[in-house]
Amino acid sequence: MAWKAIDRVNAPTEESPSLSEPLKEKIRGFFDRYPTKRAVLIPALHMIQDDHGYVGWKAMEEVAELLEITPSDVFDTVSFYSHFWTHPKGEKVVMACRSISCDLLGADRVLDECKKVLGIGDHETTPDGKYSLMTEECLAACDHGPCLMINEKMHKCVDPANVRKILEDDANDKLDIPRSNLYDGANRTSA
């Protein structure tokens, strides 16, 4: 063709990870929670992203097969939600809130500082694969703006001057609370 068009006729050439058998089993473990298999899609995508770091083409195709839907159904859902990455992301994702309360309390300076310290822009990843950066709509911690979330951990009332210190702390994404491991199923003794 004489002009540029995105190719959907041929399968993508870039490599992307497959679902491992344990991961598939984990996904299947959610089947009895919902009356349809499709409803397991969003939990499954979370599990895939936890495992692979993102949701690649191959994973989309394989989860479609597992849930008996079309790959395009998966593509559709994945692309709708801002938390799913379709390209590899870093070990830790820094989510900078930019909604009104944080914004008025200086969120843009916090974000700029993150960009400066990490040397990356929105939806980019540091060369060492450690950090990715994204902006967030309201993190629901407006009483403590501006906020940053690093993976699961919320950092409240962030002063731009402290951003470097936060990012240099290895434990900046660690939650110190009892946890029910996400999607490992309920840790119940009875059902």
Partner: peptide, 17 residues
């Protein structure tokens, strides 16, 4: 629960268990 509720997710899941 919205995805941004991470800590709250663990709290709720532990409580639910």
């Amino acid at each position: 629960m919205r995805a941004e509720f991470t800590e709250q997710y663990h709290i709720m899941q532990v409580a639910l268990d």
